[in-house]
């Protein structure tokens, strides 16, 4: 494993994309920053611009309006960039499946880009952190 890759696994800056979610997952993502969970211990930071991001945390069921944006945001992110599907909605659209307002699930929208799925409604902060750690491990295996 090269130095670059090692540095990447030690400093994953995350950008949070909410695409038609009920905001529970979004709140639990923010909760990861807070004193009890504190993902800065692993070097992770929540950044404000997608240009600074190493991992996109995508929540929500991909509604028609925001799905386009998610695709564009992924294109705008500097590579290598991990994508994590946070919450049951992002994994398989959950309870909203079949609604007229939704497009395809995240992994069909960004084929091959999704590295980790974190199910749960909402997933606990522990689960989100575990998902991030496992996604980083896939980088190490490469």
């Amino acid at each position: 494993m090269g130095l670059k890759l090692k540095a990447l696994t030690k400093s994953p800056w995350v950008f949070h994309v909410s695409a038609g979610s009920c905001n529970n997952c979004d709140i639990e993502i923010l909760d990861c920053l807070c004193p009890r969970f504190d993902i800065e211990r692993f070097g992770a930071l929540l950044v404000g611009s997608v240009r600074h991001a190493d991992a996109l945390l995508v929540t929500g069921a991909m509604n028609r309006k925001s799905a386009m944006r998610v695709k564009k945001l992924y294109d705008q992110a500097p590579k290598p960039c991990l994508v994590l599907a946070i919450g049951t909605c992002a994994c398989d659209q959950g309870i909203f499946r079949g609604s007229y307002a939704l497009t395809t699930p995240l992994d069909e929208l960004l084929p091959g880009a999704v590295t980790a799925y974190v199910p749960g409604c909402p997933p606990k902060p522990e689960a989100i952190i575990s998902g991030l750690v496992k996604a980083l491990q896939t980088l190490q295996d490469k």
């Binding site: 670059k4 540095a7 400093s11 500097p78």
Partner: peptide
């Protein structure tokens, strides 16, 4: 803020990582 905070080498990792990323 009652958190643990980043490890000692964190700023170095950040810089090395950014150097290895795509420039847009």
């Amino acid at each position: 803020q009652w958190r643990v905070g980043p490890p000692f080498l964190q700023p170095f990792y950040d810089i090395v990582k950014l150097l290895g990323k795509e420039v847009i």
